[in-house]
């Protein structure tokens, strides 16, 4: 193990990442304002960011394989990952907060409860507060909701099982059984992918058969933004799992030294826990 804390003398990838993000955001902003160049800039920026991610991680993995990182560097990575996940938790908290506020305050007040008596009387006398709702104006038209104890319950079981399989993979890694490790990782990737497939088909069903869209008032907004951001995180997590599976096959990890694996496992458990919150507060209650 290296004696000194490893401090690289230059970093070439960050500026690539900054340029990529900038081009991407410039493109997305133009796209939203109907500029023809928008989609192309967004695409170009995304490609630059992907190249940056690939190059940056390749460099870090290379340095790790060379044994440049000591225990203190490992500690920095671990703590950094924990704080990153905490920031993600707070991002979801904003949307959960919006859901709770809408259900506890905004909708009841529009229905005339408490402080909202005059709002209801003057603006929306016909509106009775209920959940789910598309609001007093029924934005997006009538819709039905996804029943909790069908596909969402199955998806809950799938994600919980994937939390189990990744733990089994970790145990196999700690016993240096590469065959079992790769097998359990593949199972985890498969479960993540099945979850995403079901989630996508649920969206199609919602849009085509139930009339439930992003525009279905506050219910559609909270439903799709919460499950959508969660789905994005599962997608990201699945890609991370695939990379880690490949690294397991390449023999990058040892019994004691496998923080890359653990970081992804933590991330995977995080998306799992967020889903439990979603299942309870978005689907069941």
């Amino acid at each position: 193990m290296a004696e000194h804390y490893y401090v690289p003398h230059t970093a070439k990838w960050p500026i690539v990442g900054s340029i990529g993000l900038f081009v991407m955001m410039l493109g997305a902003g133009s796209w939203l304002n109907q500029a023809a160049i928008g989609p192309w800039f967004t695409l170009a920026g995304s490609v630059i960011v992907l190249v940056m991610i690939f190059g940056w991680f390749a460099q870090v993995i290379g340095e790790s394989e060379q044994g440049l990182y000591n225990r203190a560097v490992d500690g920095s990575f671990r703590q950094g990952m924990i704080w990153f996940i905490f920031s993600e938790v707070m991002f979801f908290a904003a949307f959960f907060g919006a859901l709770f506020y809408a259900r506890m305050f905004a909708v009841p007040w529009l229905g005339g409860e408490g402080a909202g008596a005059m709002t209801n009387e003057l603006l929306f006398p016909e509106f009775d507060a209920a959940w789910p709702t598309a609001g007093p104006a029924q934005l997006g038209g009538d819709f039905q909701i996804i029943p909790a104890f069908e596909l969402p319950l199955l998806n809950t079981l799938i994600l919980l099982t994937s939390g189990l399989t990744i733990t089994l993979a970790h145990w196999a890694l700690k016993k240096a059984k590469r065959g079992a490790l790769v097998g359990w990782m593949a199972a985890t990737v498969a479960l993540g992918s099945i979850f995403l497939y079901f989630q996508a088909s649920e969206y199609v069903h919602a849009y085509q058969d139930l009339g439930l869209t992003l525009g279905s008032g506050i219910y559609g907004s909270t439903f799709f933004m919460l499950t959508g951001f969660h789905g994005l995180h599962v997608t990201l997590g699945t890609i991370m799992l695939i990379v880690i599976t490949l690294r397991c096959m390449a023999g990058h990890f040892s019994k004691k030294n496998h923080f890359g694996f653990e970081a992804v496992a933590w991330y995977w458990h995080f998306v799992d826990v967020v889903w439990l919150g979603l299942f309870v507060f978005v689907y069941v209650i």
């Binding site: 609001g135 007093p136 934005l139 992003l214 525009g215 559609g220 909270t222």
Partner: peptide, 9 residues
């Protein structure tokens, strides 16, 4: 979306 739009709840 209707997060901040009373017409949509």
């Amino acid at each position: 979306t209707s997060f901040f739009n009373a017409a949509g709840g």
